[in-house]
């Protein structure tokens, strides 16, 4: 049984993703969007989990990396003919080149990793409340720059005409890749050492683990995966504006992670799917009888309830066990 544990740790999340992927091919087009959203949400939440879950340090800033990934992938895949017309202020290198779908996802991951490295190098010295506030500042800075700096993106306007390549196949493969990387990382010695610092920083340092270096490693990996997930996101939506990758998405993804259980991969996947399901159900209900905004009320209430009553989340923060 013990040999099976790591396999199960990976198989559980993957089964859920594949099941969701199959579901998305079997339902009507209007429902499919919800399922795809849920799968991309799994990618984002697992990407965020790689840092928050393994290090135990709270970050409000991971959506910054999703944002830059989304805008990088989006700006690089808008057809050249149209780009010159709608994004005139871009740096020439961005304006005069066009990338394919897969390349754009890799670029998104790269941009996310680079930004995370730049930001993380100083910030990973902080923990607790200071880390929470500093990463929130990162989110604000990223949003401000993306919104106002028209040389790197569309600025305050919506970027449209992005090829919609994230269908059932790309969403499923993308989320699977993110889960695979997250699983491989948490089973590696780096992941284990970082988890040791989460449980007891002093003891971990005493046996020679550099807290700063290991946190930074996870932060950069998380940044890369977040950027990649952002790329999946923009290719699913076909258009993006800075407001879509800001406070509300931060709130929703954190809610997913918290509800599922912050400290396990299984928790991240379950939380993302459960809250997405609830969210889409309510979004559909809002079109009918329920007033607009019920969605956020219920998700906020569920998140607060879980935090108060069961801070370790519905999975208890543990991996899947038989």
């Amino acid at each position: 049984m013990r040999r099976l544990a790591p396999v199960l740790e990976l198989a559980g999340p993957l089964l859920l993703i594949v099941a969701a992927g199959l579901l998305s091919t079997a339902v009507s087009r209007s429902t499919q969007i919800y399922v795809l959203h849920a799968i991309v949400a799994v990618a984002m939440v697992v990407a965020i989990y790689v840092f928050i879950g393994n290090s135990g340090v709270l970050s409000f800033g991971q959506i910054s990396f999703v944002a830059v990934g989304a805008f990088a992938a989006g700006v690089m895949t808008v057809p050249l003919l149209l780009k010159g017309a709608i994004l005139r202020d871009l740096f020439p290198i961005l304006r005069d080149h066009e990338l394919g779908n897969v390349e754009s996802l890799l670029v998104a991951a790269g941009v996310g990793a680079v930004l995370a490295a730049v930001v993380g190098l100083p910030l990973m010295r902080l923990s607790g409340l200071a880390a929470g506030i500093a990463t929130f500042a990162v989110l604000e800075i990223t949003n401000n720059l993306l919104r106002e700096w028209t040389a790197i993106g569309p600025g305050a306007t919506t970027l449209s005409l992005v090829p919609q390549t994230t269908g059932p196949a790309q969403a499923t493969i993308g989320a699977t890749l993110v889960v695979l990387v997250a699983w491989a990382y948490q089973r590696s010695r780096f992941g284990r050492r970082l988890r040791a610092t989460r449980e007891d920083p002093a003891a971990a340092q005493a046996v020679g683990i550099s807290v700063h270096r290991h946190r930074l490693g996870a932060f950069v990996l998380s940044g890369a995966l977040c950027g990649f997930a952002g790329g999946l996101y923009v290719h699913m939506l076909g258009s993006i504006s800075t407001g879509q990758v800001y406070l509300e998405l931060t709130f929703l993804t954190l809610a997913m992670l918290v509800v599922g259980g912050m400290t396990s991969l299984w928790g991240a996947v379950v939380g993302a799917l459960a809250v997405s399901g609830l969210d889409s159900f309510l979004a559909e209900a809002e079109r009918g009888a329920l007033p607009d905004g019920t969605r956020l009320v219920v998700v906020g209430a569920v998140m607060a309830l879980v935090l108060v009553l069961r801070p370790s989340g519905i999975t208890g923060g543990k991996e899947l066990r038989l």
Binding site: L58, F251, V258, L296, A304, L307
Partner: peptide, 13 residues
């Protein structure tokens, strides 16, 4: 940090 996340949720709620 947990309390900060909770008040964050509360603000949205």
């Amino acid at each position: 940090a947990v309390m900060l996340v909770t008040t964050f949720a509360l603000a949205f709620l």
